[in-house]
């Protein structure tokens, strides 16, 4: 058949899906409030308590950006896949010639744009209200870039994998938010990991959130001396790449094994 030659390309369809995903995402108030703005609002509220000096502001803002992109990727993307399954989007797509990869590219576009919007909003709040300074060197922006990308991708994949467990959006809110909230306490977002008991610290260190936050703290710290405040006493950039890379691979395997197009089919 010659028809295959004329069917639209996987990548261009992916971008077209991304545009449609974004349009749908930003038209929903819940997304604007909870997924995109909540981290900035928390920064404003908690920052008033935590930030007594500039150095603390830098560290807290960095941790909040880390927690924020997990909210848009892990929780946000997981929820959006559950919703696609619940309202029949996935089933409809499966009945069209759209390649599965295009759906996935669309979700990646969605998660990167929503994460960026969320992070920019949060940084704006931090800069205006708490005089937080942006990283000053290209080296630091480079670190910011790869931690951001690896963090978003690994957490998106885990979110999508977990979404297969949840049968409905109501279920999914619990399945995804519970680990997210617990991990924020174990990963040094609200309280330093250094003050946690050994067992909790180790538990937190198994998951991406701690490493994403640590990576961002290394970028936002006023100088590298602040590394002594980390549990290991250093930034451990190599280990961050390793852990996030491992979760990306594990997430990919989990998604390809567990992905379901619908709740009812078998």
């Amino acid at each position: 058949m010659t028809a295959v030659a004329t069917l639209p390309g996987t990548f261009s369809l992916g971008l077209s899906r991304g545009a449609t995903e974004l349009r749908e995402f930003f038209r929903q108030k819940e997304n604007l409030i909870f997924t995109v703005s909540l981290p900035a609002i928390l920064m404003l509220l908690l920052g008033t308590v935590y930030v007594k000096e500039p150095a603390a502001g830098q560290m807290f803002a960095a941790s909040m950006i880390g927690a924020g992109i997990i909210s848009t990727s892990f929780v946000g993307l997981g929820m959006s896949v559950v919703a696609d399954r619940e309202d029949g989007t996935l089933k409809r797509l499966r009945g069209t010639p759209m390649p599965f990869t295009s759906y996935f590219i669309g979700k990646i576009v969605l998660v990167f744009v929503s994460s960026l919007v969320e992070a920019v909003l949060l940084m704006a709040v931090a800069m205006l209200r708490f005089d937080v300074e942006l990283p000053s060197t290209a080296q630091k922006w480079f670190t910011f870039g790869w931690v951001f990308v690896l963090g978003v991708i690994s957490c998106s994949l885990i979110g999508v994998a977990l979404s297969s467990i949840a049968k409905s959006t109501r279920n999914a809110a619990g399945v995804l938010n519970l680990p997210y909230i617990v991990l924020q306490f174990l990963s040094g977002v609200f309280i330093s990991q250094a003050v946690l008991p050994e067992s909790l610290r180790v538990t937190g260190s198994l998951f991406p959130l701690k490493w994403v936050c640590q990576g961002f703290r290394s970028v936002f710290a006023l100088d590298d001396g602040y590394a002594v405040m980390e549990a290991a006493g250093s930034w451990e950039l190599g280990k961050i790449a390793l852990v996030l890379g491992a979760w990306t691979i594990a997430g990919l395997l989990l998604v390809t094994r567990t992905f379901r197009w619908s709740n009812t089919t078998s």
Partner: peptide, 16 residues
């Protein structure tokens, strides 16, 4: 894919 491009499907219910 090519096979699916030759089909049109209207499911019993949808709210997407």
């Amino acid at each position: 894919r090519v096979w699916r491009s030759r089909l049109g499907i209207v499911l019993q219910s949808a709210s997407d």
